[in-house]
Design a protein around this nucleic acid. Structure first.
Lengths: 191, 191
DNA sequence: CTCCTAAGTCATCGATCGGTGACTTAGACC
DNA sequence: GGTCTAAGTCACCGATCGATGACTTAGGAG
């Protein structure tokens, strides 16, 4: 009576609610009973659909690697796009933080570190490294720039540093230009 | 027979071992039984000495704000010093990571965010902001530089990005110079 | 040697966790 | 309307957690 029996819809709801919990409270801080309670369903259903809590987590956070790649547009625009995505975009599904930063909150487990590294490497460094082409330490420059974006996101949302927490995209634009130029040795448009 | 009964020595050992566990496994990933087991003492003793697990955590991580301030020497040398401390120094007591990065792993609880922000502001931003003097958005520049250092440390230890994980201090020195100059608008010595 | 204080131990509680297997029930199909 | 399959539920297990209070024992003082 309350809900129609729709496997796919229930699965989707479980994924959506667990995403929020995992992002906000971390892996250990989220219990299967909590997630099932949010959806209004029996906790056992989680294990029927996802095998284990870890399986639920994997599937819930897997979508975070999709919106990373920005295939179209010239490479020069990547820094500005990545900053918008990593720092300023409001990831409502992930409790307001970028999924990568949210995953960092659950970095206790070993496989989490591996998953994080894989997503950072394949989702960000690979596409960014084209910008550093021509420099001898291309990969290092790329990682240093990614570190900057990640650090900004963390100071903004996870630490809540006063100035950065209130900064707008326009505030950061000029500094993005100077730092990107310093690291990549070329000008990048910041729109 | 095994050990003398020395309250202060036992307390100190509990703090030391718990620091390592909390840093490596996070707050939730560390049990009172684990810590007591490391010291070779009964878990109940932890509650007798620290009242609760949370009390043990607070006291164990409190010392992490001490070694932050570097009062002597000119401000221009601060970036290089902070990078060495945040990124390259081997914090053996904290499982090899800087305590701030270790605390980030336990950022699930609410008071942790406040404690983190306070330590970052009072321990780093306050002393760094002198370097940005003369710029209109002094505080923003300071936080952006701190974000960079923090991001580098996180990519190195928590994520394990391939190039940064193997990078030496000498590798980063030239980039430290260019980025610091880009953000602060002045040259900084990198030794 | 005795005694007394404090350091440390033991047994145990109640809650919560992830996980399992047997069960019930909704709803499409003939 | 009966039936059969799959969606969802229920009762329960073993482990582990933080925490408590009564207990034991070490070791210096007299």
């Amino acid at each position: 009576m309350a809900h129609k029996r729709d496997r796919e819809a229930t699965r989707a709801k479980l994924l959506e609610c667990s995403r929020l919990r995992f992002a906000r409270d971390g892996y250990d801080g989220t219990s299967v009973r909590d997630v099932a309670g949010d959806v209004g369903v029996d906790p056992a259903l989680v294990f029927r659909y996802f095998g284990s809590k870890s399986g639920l987590f994997t599937e819930a956070m897997a979508g975070s690697s999709e919106p990373v790649i920005l295939p179209d547009g010239p490479v020069e625009e990547l820094p500005a796009k990545l900053m918008r995505q990593l720092v300023f975009e409001d990831w409502a599904e992930y409790a307001g933080e970028h999924p990568l930063i949210a995953m960092l909150r659950s970095a206790g487990h070993e496989d989490m570190k591996d998953r994080l590294r894989q997503q950072v490497c394949e989702g960000y460094l690979d596409v960014l490294s084209d910008l550093a082409e021509g420099n001898e330490d291309k990969n290092l420059r790329t990682e240093l720039f990614a570190a900057w974006l990640l650090g900004i996101g963390i100071l903004r949302t996870a630490v809540g540093t006063p100035t950065l927490a209130k900064a707008t995209e326009d505030d950061l634009r000029p500094h993005l230009a100077t730092v990107a130029e310093a690291l990549f040795g070329r000008e990048v448009p910041v729109d």
